[in-house]
């Protein structure tokens, strides 16, 4: 186990002060349309870690993230904060940013899209509270879009739309961020802004899991990279402390370092 890991707290559930992994999977398989997409995935992400899930197109990295959120059927064990996915109900602890292409809004404003992020902690048939409104405004400010709050989402640029989706996840106030390819098709300015947001979240102790094609501007934020190829985890380890520009995923040494915590009953 890596001693430098932010989550390297007492490993046994019986220890006082034990915090379960934010995310843990054991032997997870995903088969879609008869085709195995994710095979036997074991991973454990401690609270406060910033982890990139990397791989080429079709390697299964997005499907793995979607499986851990219950969005695609899976076999094997998935736990969020120590609770099996099937009985997990504390969804306000999770802030998901899906790929942008899935959004269907006609005339909704950026603010209305961000407001959805508050629904995990909002009762049906009850109006938004002052705290809700403040969280929505703060989230829009953090991504630099306070002045675009009343603009229709569909009229924003690709980078701005991505920032709205990040703001929606921020508005949840979640302690586990799950971002799926946030850099796809966004400009350099937005990339820099998103890495600043991620760095701030990390400083606040939020666990970050990001599906990425390449590390790009997230490199300074990420502690550890999990690499997938053909649905299998082929590498899992910390980023080398000294790394060159244009660091390749393949440089990571194959390891199962993070399985040590699993032996506890």
């Amino acid at each position: 186990m890596l001693l430098t890991q932010p989550g390297s707290l007492p490993a046994s559930p019986t220890d006082p002060g034990y915090r379960p992994p934010a995310l843990r999977t054991v032997g997870v398989d995903v088969v879609l349309g008869g085709i195995p997409i994710v095979r036997n995935a074991d991973l454990e992400i401690q609270p406060g870690e910033a982890v990139a899930i990397m791989g080429n197109n079709g390697s299964g990295k997005t499907t793995l993230m979607r499986a851990t959120l219950g969005l695609v059927p899976h076999q094997g064990l998935i736990e969020l904060f120590g609770t099996p996915l099937e009985s997990f109900r504390e969804w306000r602890r999770v802030g998901y940013v899906p790929q942008r292409s899935g959004i269907l809004v006609q005339q909704a404003t950026a603010r209305e899209v961000v407001a959805s992020g508050r629904l995990a902690s909002r009762r049906p048939f009850s109006p938004a509270t002052t705290a809700d409104r403040k969280a929505i405004t703060a989230a829009l400010e953090r991504v630099g879009l306070a002045d675009r709050a009343r603009h229709p989402f569909v009229r924003l640029s690709g980078g701005q739309q991505q920032r709205v989706l990040i703001a929606r996840a921020l508005a949840t106030g979640a302690e586990l961020m799950m971002w799926d390819e946030p850099l796809a098709g966004v400009d350099h300015h937005t990339q820099a802004l998103l890495s600043e947001v991620a760095a701030q979240l990390k400083a606040d102790g939020v666990t970050i899991v990001i599906v990425l094609h390449e590390l790009g501007c997230f490199e300074p934020v990420i502690d550890r990279a999990i690499s997938l190829a053909e649905g299998r985890i082929v590498a899992d380890g910390p980023l080398p402390a000294e790394r060159s520009e244009g660091h390749e995923v393949a440089d990571l040494k194959p390891t199962t370092l993070h399985r040590t915590g699993l032996e506890a009953p």
Partner: peptide, 22 residues
């Protein structure tokens, strides 16, 4: 009108709506 935020969230982005427990 009463479930507007929930119904909007579901019709705009079903995967996200699932991950906020709707």
């Amino acid at each position: 009108l009463g479930l507007l935020p929930q119904l909007f969230a579901v019709s705009a982005d079903e995967p996200f709506a699932r991950t906020i427990g709707l």
